[in-house]
Design a protein around this nucleic acid. Structure first.
Lengths: 149, 149
DNA sequence: ACTCAGGATGAGACTGATTATCATTCTTGA
DNA sequence: TCAAGAATGATAATCAGTCTCATCCTGAGT
């Protein structure tokens, strides 16, 4: 049961991160993390509310803020008006997004390590030229998803 | 006066684009375009309001919507809650952004053509694998700008 | 120049996602 | 068992962004 072990390890890491900022890994928070975990793509508040009907929105929003503070969740803004949430890359792996400009859905893609190296190096040089200190990068592909095509 | 000629040409292009959607290139709209033009980086509504105090926000927002419809302006969302606006790449040139996670400021960078080719090809392959049809891509570098360092 | 049809503008009301407040209910450590 | 403090849910508040509508302006035709 390697998969389950990994999941448990993940939850342990998350709990540790929450403790670091004096917060508990409660049921509501864990439900949210589990949801993001098995969605495998960034979810909007609407999708979260639909998947977890018993979780009030005010609590969902607060949990998301707390989880962001703890470095567990990352917030991204796509092309539509709603923010979307995904697990931090430290818990999953470095990846980028395909954003459907028709329905707003966001899918994950993971480029090769070589690609990432090239991108980082090039962008690092350009950033340095403007006195900018890079910490990470975001690569989004805009277009139309299979459902909307 | 090559620079001025180019600017005039640009305004002529913009006017043509507006006409295409039955709209006029009025003073207020031109003021907005001029502002974005010499800012050379994406501006938030706050910055626009500050630079053009006599332009009501409701008008600024509407102009921005109209200019987007005409393909003159592009809206981007950085890491903070406000949207930012810049001239469409057809009027300037393809470029990417350095986003300061401390103050929210956005700067432009223009990678080499070779870099762009590599990025497009790689991302195109990954997109195709998920039945996604790409139309464009966004590359942002997150970090700290010179002022905030 | 005169007129009118339709686009442009400004002021203010409105919407809806996100945040803050607060009273109540758990948890945890002593 | 008992605080002390964190978590939760309901609700009010905030605020970027949008819509409405009355008025103004522009351009084409005469």
């Amino acid at each position: 049961m390697v998969a389950i072990d990994r999941t448990e390890e993940l939850h342990a890491t998350i709990e540790a991160r929450l403790r670091r900022v004096e917060q508990r890994y409660t049921g509501g928070r864990r439900a949210l993390v589990d949801l993001l975990l098995d969605a495998g793509r960034p979810l909007s508040i609407g999708e979260i509310a639909e998947a977890l009907p018993s979780l009030p929105r005010s609590s969902a929003y607060r949990h998301l803020v707390d989880l962001q503070t703890a470095g567990v969740v990352r917030r991204i803004s796509a092309t539509d008006e709603f923010a979307r949430f995904e697990l931090d890359e430290h818990l999953t792996e470095h990846h980028h997004h395909l954003i459907c400009t028709s329905c707003g859905r966001v899918l994950d893609i993971t480029p090769s390590a070589g690609f990432e190296r090239t991108v980082s190096r090039q962008l690092g040089e350009l950033a340095a030229a403007q006195g900018f200190t890079p910490t990470s990068h975001v690569v989004d592909v805009l277009g139309t998803c299979a459902d909307c095509a």
